[in-house]
């Protein structure tokens, strides 16, 4: 992936359940639509990296965090609501 991508995201999920799968699928789908390949997204399973859950102050999952551009914006859920996803994450 392009490390100089303007948009950088971190998607935190727990395990490999339905919620996690949905979130990963939806995020990829929508980001591909809106940003084509001009973004970078890492997927983190907090079950494997619990320390990250503390550092990132995570309670609700799944959560997508926009790391770049600032300010950091977070959005929780399986990302099934396209409109909210778009307005919260990309219009800010």
């Amino acid at each position: 992936m392009d490390s100089k991508a303007l948009y950088r995201f971190s998607l935190f999920v727990s395990g490999e359940g339905l919620l996690a799968k949905k979130a990963i699928f939806n995020c990829k789908k929508y980001l591909d639509i809106f940003l084509q390949s001009n973004y970078d997204m890492e997927i983190i399973d907090v079950l494997q990296y619990p320390k990250l859950a503390i550092d990132e102050n995570i309670i609700a999952l799944p959560i997508l965090k926009r790391k770049n551009p600032l300010p950091e914006i977070s959005i929780v859920g399986d990302m099934s609501n396209l409109e909210l996803f778009k307005s919260d994450l990309l219009m800010n």
Binding site: S14, L19, K22, A23, N26, I59, A60, L61, P62, I63, I73, S74, I75, V76, G77, D78, M79, S80, N81, L84, F85, D88, L89
Partner: peptide, 9 residues
Amino acid sequence: EMHESGKYN
């Protein structure tokens, strides 16, 4: 944190 889109836990 509470921008929501769909279900979460």
